[in-house]
Amino acid sequence: MIKEFIDLLFLSLTYMTPLVLAAIGEIVTEKSGIVNIGIEGIMLFAAFSATVVTFFTGNPFFGVLIGTVLGGLLGLVHGIISIYLRGDQIIAGIGLNILAYGATAVGLISIWGNFGSSPFVAKIPKIVVYNRYISPLTISSIIIAIVFWWVLSRTAIGLKIRACGESPHAAEAMGVNIWLVRLGSTIVGGSLSGLAGAYMSIDLVGQFSRGITAGRGFIALANVVFSNWNPLLTILGGFVFGFFDALAAYLDIIVQSIALTYIFKIIPYASTLIVVTAFIGKSKPPADLGKPYFKE
């Protein structure tokens, strides 16, 4: 019994990782005032590109790096659309998700001629702890959470970012370059989402399949709200949501019923919904979130 439980806990850690990374990224973006619901799309693009790179170079680290960089680039695009072109941030995010789904499917077909999934690629080597495996990215995600918490609350750049999200007019009057800070934040946010996506294909599964992210980008958004925009709390939230994800996978393996697979798959989404509903009353988003900035 204990052994199974510990297995489940370790599995939760693996599922927690992308939810923490993407959430931290989105926290940085949202603290600066921009909302990016396209992180699901970024994760998908990153997962795909990381797989492609790893496939052709044989080097999983390089794949993860490219995935992260691509995420940053997509964050840049979203930033330009939101900040300079003053586009509707929600709609742009929706478009990005749809685009990602289509483009990665097209890519899957044109590179490997397969409509479902790519061949398996090299994975990131794991660290062994008590006969179980933990990914270095999982540990990194926790460290990243702590680092970003500290940066946002205790440093000058963190102050600037928060100022943009709370009162951009006041911040600008105080010499903060709103455009640059917000753009930088969306790039950082995109990079972390990219890292999360790359992790999913290279580290967690070992291949890319259509729709591999399966809504995890949105669960990460739920994690942002759950953690009240505090990077430290995303670890807790990520673990809770990751636990349900792991539970679904675990039950699937144990119960071995094709029919019930579908029912188990519902667990992460239903639990996310319930958790968010229960905890939401206490959260306070940045005051200027999602509004394009118009100079007076």
């Binding site: 509707d88 742009a92 929706i94 990602a100 289509g102 499917a105 097209v106």
Partner: peptide, 20 residues
């Protein structure tokens, strides 16, 4: 691949988010 149409549509939506 017909997913190309999805790509077109996604780009269209992004383009449509830009009234200003």
């Amino acid at each position: 691949p017909k997913e190309l149409v999805d790509t077109l549509i996604g780009t269209l939506i992004i383009a449509l988010s830009l009234p200003y």
